[in-house]
Computed example of a mutant assay.
Amino acid sequence: MTNSANRQTRASQKRQRLTAAAARVLHEQGVERTTLADIAREADVPVGNVYYYFKTKDELVRAALTEHTAHLDELTGALDELPDPRDRLKGLIAAWVAGRETAARRGCPTGTLAVELGKRADGTLDAEAGAVIRRLLDWTAAQFRTLNLPAPDDLALTLVSAYQGMSLLANALRDPTVMTREGDRLLHWLDSL
Protein backbone atom coordinates (compact mmCIF):
# COMPACT_ATOMS: atom_id res chain seq x y z
CA MET A 1 0.00 0.00 0.00
CA THR A 2 1.30 3.44 -0.90
CA ASN A 3 1.75 6.26 1.60
CA SER A 4 -1.18 8.08 0.03
CA ALA A 5 -3.41 5.02 0.40
CA ASN A 6 -2.28 4.60 4.02
CA ARG A 7 -3.16 8.23 4.76
CA GLN A 8 -6.56 7.82 3.14
CA THR A 9 -7.24 4.66 5.14
CA ARG A 10 -6.22 6.34 8.41
CA ALA A 11 -8.33 9.40 7.59
CA SER A 12 -11.33 7.19 6.82
CA GLN A 13 -10.85 5.29 10.09
CA LYS A 14 -10.53 8.54 12.05
CA ARG A 15 -13.71 9.91 10.47
CA GLN A 16 -15.52 6.66 11.32
CA ARG A 17 -14.29 6.83 14.92
CA LEU A 18 -15.58 10.39 15.17
CA THR A 19 -18.93 9.41 13.67
CA ALA A 20 -19.37 6.48 16.08
CA ALA A 21 -18.26 8.66 19.00
CA ALA A 22 -20.75 11.37 17.98
CA ALA A 23 -23.59 8.85 17.98
CA ARG A 24 -22.64 7.59 21.46
CA VAL A 25 -21.96 10.95 23.09
CA LEU A 26 -25.02 12.67 21.61
CA HIS A 27 -27.15 9.81 22.92
CA GLU A 28 -25.56 10.04 26.36
CA GLN A 29 -25.52 13.82 26.75
CA GLY A 30 -27.87 15.26 24.16
CA VAL A 31 -27.06 17.74 21.42
CA GLU A 32 -27.01 20.90 23.46
CA ARG A 33 -24.77 19.58 26.23
CA THR A 34 -22.29 17.90 23.89
CA THR A 35 -19.19 19.75 22.74
CA LEU A 36 -16.86 18.89 19.91
CA ALA A 37 -14.21 18.31 22.58
CA ASP A 38 -16.43 15.64 24.18
CA ILE A 39 -16.67 13.81 20.88
CA ALA A 40 -12.94 14.18 20.18
CA ARG A 41 -12.14 12.74 23.61
CA GLU A 42 -14.50 9.79 23.07
CA ALA A 43 -12.95 9.10 19.64
CA ASP A 44 -9.42 9.55 20.99
CA VAL A 45 -8.74 12.22 18.39
CA PRO A 46 -7.17 15.65 18.99
CA VAL A 47 -9.95 18.23 19.11
CA GLY A 48 -8.36 20.23 16.28
CA ASN A 49 -8.76 17.20 14.00
CA VAL A 50 -12.52 17.21 14.51
CA TYR A 51 -12.75 20.47 12.56
CA TYR A 52 -10.91 18.89 9.65
CA TYR A 53 -13.71 16.33 9.23
CA PHE A 54 -16.71 18.21 10.64
CA LYS A 55 -16.93 22.00 10.54
CA THR A 56 -19.93 22.28 12.87
CA LYS A 57 -21.76 20.37 15.55
CA ASP A 58 -24.69 19.99 13.14
CA GLU A 59 -22.40 18.10 10.77
CA LEU A 60 -21.57 15.75 13.64
CA VAL A 61 -25.26 15.33 14.43
CA ARG A 62 -25.85 14.48 10.78
CA ALA A 63 -22.99 11.96 10.98
CA ALA A 64 -24.57 10.45 14.11
CA LEU A 65 -27.85 10.07 12.24
CA THR A 66 -25.94 8.31 9.47
CA GLU A 67 -24.54 5.99 12.14
CA HIS A 68 -28.05 5.28 13.46
CA THR A 69 -29.16 4.48 9.91
CA ALA A 70 -26.23 2.12 9.45
CA HIS A 71 -27.09 0.29 12.70
CA LEU A 72 -30.72 0.01 11.62
CA ASP A 73 -29.72 -1.29 8.20
CA GLU A 74 -27.37 -3.81 9.80
CA LEU A 75 -30.12 -5.05 12.11
CA THR A 76 -32.82 -5.25 9.45
CA GLY A 77 -30.36 -6.81 7.00
CA ALA A 78 -29.62 -9.59 9.49
CA LEU A 79 -33.34 -10.02 10.20
CA ASP A 80 -34.06 -10.22 6.47
CA GLU A 81 -32.08 -13.47 6.45
CA LEU A 82 -34.92 -15.08 8.41
CA PRO A 83 -37.40 -16.73 6.04
CA ASP A 84 -40.59 -15.79 7.93
CA PRO A 85 -41.63 -12.11 8.24
CA ARG A 86 -43.28 -12.78 11.62
CA ASP A 87 -39.95 -14.13 12.87
CA ARG A 88 -38.26 -11.00 11.50
CA LEU A 89 -40.64 -8.82 13.51
CA LYS A 90 -40.08 -10.97 16.60
CA GLY A 91 -36.34 -10.60 16.05
CA LEU A 92 -36.78 -6.84 15.93
CA ILE A 93 -38.60 -6.91 19.26
CA ALA A 94 -35.90 -9.17 20.71
CA ALA A 95 -33.25 -6.64 19.63
CA TRP A 96 -35.19 -3.85 21.32
CA VAL A 97 -35.48 -5.87 24.52
CA ALA A 98 -31.77 -6.75 24.37
CA GLY A 99 -31.07 -2.99 24.50
CA ARG A 100 -33.18 -2.55 27.65
CA GLU A 101 -30.30 -1.38 29.87
CA THR A 102 -29.37 1.37 27.42
CA ALA A 103 -33.03 2.32 26.98
CA ALA A 104 -33.45 2.57 30.76
CA ARG A 105 -30.43 4.88 30.99
CA ARG A 106 -30.94 7.02 27.89
CA GLY A 107 -34.01 6.04 25.85
CA CYS A 108 -34.02 5.16 22.16
CA PRO A 109 -30.97 6.66 20.44
CA THR A 110 -32.85 7.89 17.38
CA GLY A 111 -36.09 8.76 19.18
CA THR A 112 -34.43 10.91 21.83
CA LEU A 113 -32.36 12.67 19.19
CA ALA A 114 -35.49 13.29 17.09
CA VAL A 115 -37.31 14.80 20.07
CA GLU A 116 -34.37 17.04 20.96
CA LEU A 117 -33.86 18.18 17.37
CA GLY A 118 -37.58 18.88 17.03
CA LYS A 119 -37.30 21.48 19.79
CA ARG A 120 -34.56 23.48 18.09
CA ALA A 121 -35.54 26.80 16.55
CA ASP A 122 -33.77 26.18 13.24
CA GLY A 123 -35.56 22.87 12.54
CA THR A 124 -33.08 21.66 9.95
CA LEU A 125 -32.06 18.28 11.36
CA ASP A 126 -35.36 17.04 12.82
CA ALA A 127 -36.54 15.87 9.40
CA GLU A 128 -33.34 13.85 9.01
CA ALA A 129 -33.95 12.16 12.37
CA GLY A 130 -37.51 11.51 11.27
CA ALA A 131 -36.19 9.87 8.10
CA VAL A 132 -34.36 7.25 10.17
CA ILE A 133 -37.58 6.44 12.01
CA ARG A 134 -39.47 6.43 8.70
CA ARG A 135 -36.97 3.85 7.43
CA LEU A 136 -37.85 1.58 10.39
CA LEU A 137 -41.58 2.13 9.80
CA ASP A 138 -41.22 1.25 6.11
CA TRP A 139 -39.26 -1.94 6.85
CA THR A 140 -41.79 -2.96 9.51
CA ALA A 141 -44.75 -2.26 7.20
CA ALA A 142 -43.10 -4.40 4.51
CA GLN A 143 -43.03 -7.33 6.96
CA PHE A 144 -46.73 -6.92 7.76
CA ARG A 145 -47.46 -6.56 4.05
CA THR A 146 -45.63 -9.84 3.33
CA LEU A 147 -47.84 -11.48 5.97
CA ASN A 148 -50.86 -10.21 3.95
CA LEU A 149 -52.27 -8.47 6.99
CA PRO A 150 -54.72 -5.59 6.51
CA ALA A 151 -53.47 -2.05 7.11
CA PRO A 152 -49.75 -2.92 7.24
CA ASP A 153 -48.73 0.73 7.60
CA ASP A 154 -51.00 1.10 10.63
CA LEU A 155 -49.64 -2.10 12.18
CA ALA A 156 -46.10 -0.81 11.66
CA LEU A 157 -47.03 2.47 13.32
CA THR A 158 -48.49 0.56 16.27
CA LEU A 159 -45.35 -1.57 16.68
CA VAL A 160 -42.83 1.26 16.35
CA SER A 161 -44.94 3.51 18.59
CA ALA A 162 -44.97 0.75 21.21
CA TYR A 163 -41.18 0.59 21.03
CA GLN A 164 -40.82 4.35 21.41
CA GLY A 165 -43.28 4.32 24.30
CA MET A 166 -41.58 1.47 26.14
CA SER A 167 -38.17 3.09 25.62
CA LEU A 168 -39.46 6.38 26.98
CA LEU A 169 -41.06 4.75 30.02
CA ALA A 170 -38.05 2.53 30.73
CA ASN A 171 -35.93 5.69 30.67
CA ALA A 172 -38.31 7.82 32.72
CA LEU A 173 -38.71 5.10 35.34
CA ARG A 174 -35.08 3.92 35.06
CA ASP A 175 -36.54 0.42 34.85
CA PRO A 176 -35.26 -1.95 32.13
CA THR A 177 -37.96 -4.49 33.00
CA VAL A 178 -40.46 -2.20 31.27
CA MET A 179 -38.78 -3.21 28.00
CA THR A 180 -38.98 -6.90 28.89
CA ARG A 181 -42.62 -6.81 29.94
CA GLU A 182 -43.74 -4.74 26.98
CA GLY A 183 -41.60 -6.81 24.61
CA ASP A 184 -43.42 -9.95 25.79
CA ARG A 185 -46.75 -8.20 25.27
CA LEU A 186 -45.72 -7.23 21.72
CA LEU A 187 -44.69 -10.82 20.94
CA HIS A 188 -48.14 -12.06 22.06
CA TRP A 189 -49.77 -9.33 19.99
CA LEU A 190 -47.84 -10.45 16.90
CA ASP A 191 -48.93 -14.04 17.44
CA SER A 192 -52.55 -12.90 17.68
CA LEU A 193 -52.52 -11.23 14.25
Rank of each mutant, 00 (worst) to 15 (best):
M1V: 07
S4G: 05
A5I: 00
A5R: 01
N6L: 04
R7Y: 00
Q8N: 04
T9L: 06
T9A: 10
Q13L: 01
K14R: 15
R15Q: 00
Q16F: 00
R17G: 09
T19F: 05
R24K: 06
E28D: 12
G30S: 10
V31W: 12
V31M: 08
E32T: 12
R33A: 08
T34A: 10
L36F: 00
A43F: 03
P46A: 10
N49Y: 15
Y53R: 06
Y53G: 00
Y53N: 10
F54M: 14
K55N: 15
K55R: 11
T56G: 12
L60M: 05
A64G: 05
L65N: 07
H68N: 07
H68E: 04
T69P: 11
H71N: 11
D73P: 03
L75Y: 04
L75E: 02
G77P: 02
G77N: 07
A78Y: 03
A78F: 06
A78H: 13
L79F: 01
L82T: 01
P83A: 11
P83S: 00
P83D: 01
D84E: 09
D84N: 13
P85W: 03
R86W: 09
D87I: 12
R88T: 10
R88E: 06
R88V: 06
L92Y: 14
I93G: 07
V97R: 05
V97T: 14
A98M: 11
E101W: 04
E101N: 03
T102R: 15
A103D: 07
A104W: 06
R106Q: 07
R106K: 15
R106H: 15
G107I: 13
G107E: 13
C108P: 09
C108H: 05
T110E: 07
T110D: 04
T112Q: 06
L113P: 04
L117E: 00
L117M: 08
A121V: 04
L125S: 13
D126G: 01
A127C: 04
E128H: 11
E128W: 02
G130D: 13
V132D: 02
V132W: 01
I133T: 11
R134N: 11
L136I: 03
W139V: 15
T140F: 04
T140N: 01
A141M: 09
A142V: 14
R145A: 15
T146K: 12
N148Q: 09
P152V: 11
P152A: 13
A156T: 11
A156E: 12
L157M: 13
Y163M: 09
Q164L: 08
Q164S: 09
G165A: 05
G165M: 10
G165R: 05
G165V: 05
S167A: 15
L168S: 06
L169P: 05
A172E: 03
L173E: 07
R174S: 12
P176A: 02
M179W: 09
E182K: 15
E182T: 14
G183N: 03
D184F: 08
R185C: 11
L186H: 03
L186Q: 04
L190H: 00
